[in-house]
Simulated assay, not measured.
Amino acid sequence: MPMRRESFMAHVQERGEYGTREEAERVTRVVLALLGAHLVGTVRAQLAARLPDAFALILLNPLQAQEPLSPERFVRATAAWIEGATEKTALWDIGAVLSTVAAAAGDALTQEILLQLPPGYDVLFGHTQPT
């Protein structure tokens, strides 16, 4: 069952402390477009099925990545796509969106997502993997 759009956006807005729903939605679109470029196959489809429709479409039609971005480069790319952002604010934005994505996905799917991503993304999702 996908998370309802209102609920998803309320989580992002609260976690990111955004003044407006529009600001929260803008960063959500950028982060999901970049994330979608890193996920493939059933993992991407399963995650899309748990997101509100508009965000599922962004995830399923992502920006094309030539190579998987390290967490640091993911932060830089996010900053480049969000007008007026710095790496510090982008890190905040990513945390607000990806922690909400992790909540929507659940632990098992979040672990599968992290297996498709370069090491270090667990921190961006608000998780730390046991070593």
Rank of each mutant, 00 (worst) to 15 (best):
14 E>S: 14
48 A>H: 05
62 P>N: 06
106 G>D: 10
97 V>G: 01
73 R>Y: 12
34 L>H: 01
61 N>G: 11
104 A>D: 07
5 R>Y: 11
57 L>M: 14
23 E>C: 06
59 L>T: 03
87 E>T: 08
40 V>R: 15
10 A>R: 14
27 V>K: 04
67 E>F: 10
61 N>M: 09
77 A>K: 09
45 A>G: 05
25 E>W: 02
70 S>E: 14
101 V>W: 00
20 T>L: 11
2 P>W: 04
45 A>T: 13
121 Y>M: 11
114 L>P: 04
8 F>E: 01
44 R>M: 07
62 P>D: 00
3 M>L: 10
25 E>T: 09
106 G>A: 03
129 Q>E: 04
19 G>H: 06
71 P>A: 00
38 H>R: 15
77 A>S: 14
35 L>P: 15
131 T>W: 05
72 E>L: 13
130 P>N: 06
41 G>K: 00
87 E>Q: 09
104 A>I: 03
91 L>I: 13
54 A>L: 07
35 L>R: 11
117 L>C: 15
23 E>V: 08
72 E>C: 13
111 Q>K: 15
81 W>K: 12
123 V>H: 03
21 R>P: 08
56 A>I: 00
102 A>S: 11
45 A>S: 10
7 S>M: 12
39 L>C: 02
50 R>S: 04
71 P>E: 07
4 R>Q: 14
30 V>S: 07
68 P>C: 13
128 T>F: 04
19 G>K: 07
20 T>S: 07
106 G>N: 11
10 A>D: 00
5 R>V: 09
67 E>K: 14
99 S>V: 02
58 I>Q: 13
109 L>K: 01
82 I>H: 06
126 G>C: 03
6 E>F: 07
91 L>Q: 07
7 S>G: 13
60 L>T: 01
88 K>V: 15
40 V>T: 14
40 V>I: 09
93 D>F: 11
94 I>V: 09
79 A>L: 06
130 P>W: 06
25 E>L: 05
116 Q>A: 10
92 W>Y: 13
21 R>W: 08
11 H>M: 07
12 V>R: 05
5 R>H: 11
23 E>W: 03
121 Y>P: 05
109 L>T: 02
